[in-house]
Amino acid sequence: MNALVIECDSLSVSLGGVNVLDELTFSVYKGDFLGIVGPNGGGKTTLLRVMLGLERPSGGKVTVFGRDPGSSPGRIGYVPQRIFFDRDFPISVIDLVLMGRLSKKKLFQHYNSADREKADSAIRTAGLEPLRERRIGALSGGELQRALIARALAGEPELLLLDEPTASVDPQMKTTIYDLLDQLKEKLTIILVSHDTGTISRHVNRIACLNSKLDMLEGSSPGRKKLEELYRYPVDVIVQGEPISQTHEPR
């Protein structure tokens, strides 16, 4: 049995009186690549925010690396869904990635050459060497997403949390982001939140459906029935190499 990384025990979160997460109980083990799918507003981002210590549970218990959320910053890499950054912000890719070293540094300490090496190595992993000095405002959506992944990697995390890494990314870029994750899952525990159910099932080794309640599934594919329950409307499941299912009457 691999070491426990995250343990949730009847975790509930209510925001403004609404139960966003309702009695979630599940565990994540070292080496897992867990995909969490679900409709928008189903609480996916909130769950990640709880794990990061940004949101407090209103009930139940959650531990990350055996401690309270937010108390092991140096061991977690976080790739936010979309940062509302200003495209005119004067920061280059390398400076953005260096920010990933923040959790390893003390207050007042400046980044040193070792930090720069780690940042450069993360930039290489993400395939961004040619864009190292580029201002982030000049990056495409996919390039920015990979820069954010590089930032998380620069901190040498054991656990990587990704929030919709392929939203607002063109299909070609999506593939390269998943290729990158496939490469990373050898070394890291990964939790990925997405509504891109079809694609993630080919990459993750565990999958869970979240719509304020969590449903941990066996295997890595949710299957159509599960998805229809989850989304509450008919869905088409497209599996690569198989013909598209024809189950619904044309309307």
Binding site: P80, I91, M99
Partner: peptide, 22 residues
Amino acid sequence: WLLSKEFLAISFDEEYAAVSGL
């Protein structure tokens, strides 16, 4: 000068700065 990396982090991405333990 002392807090350049911290001030950069909270200016650019306050949430990430918090997640990093600042």
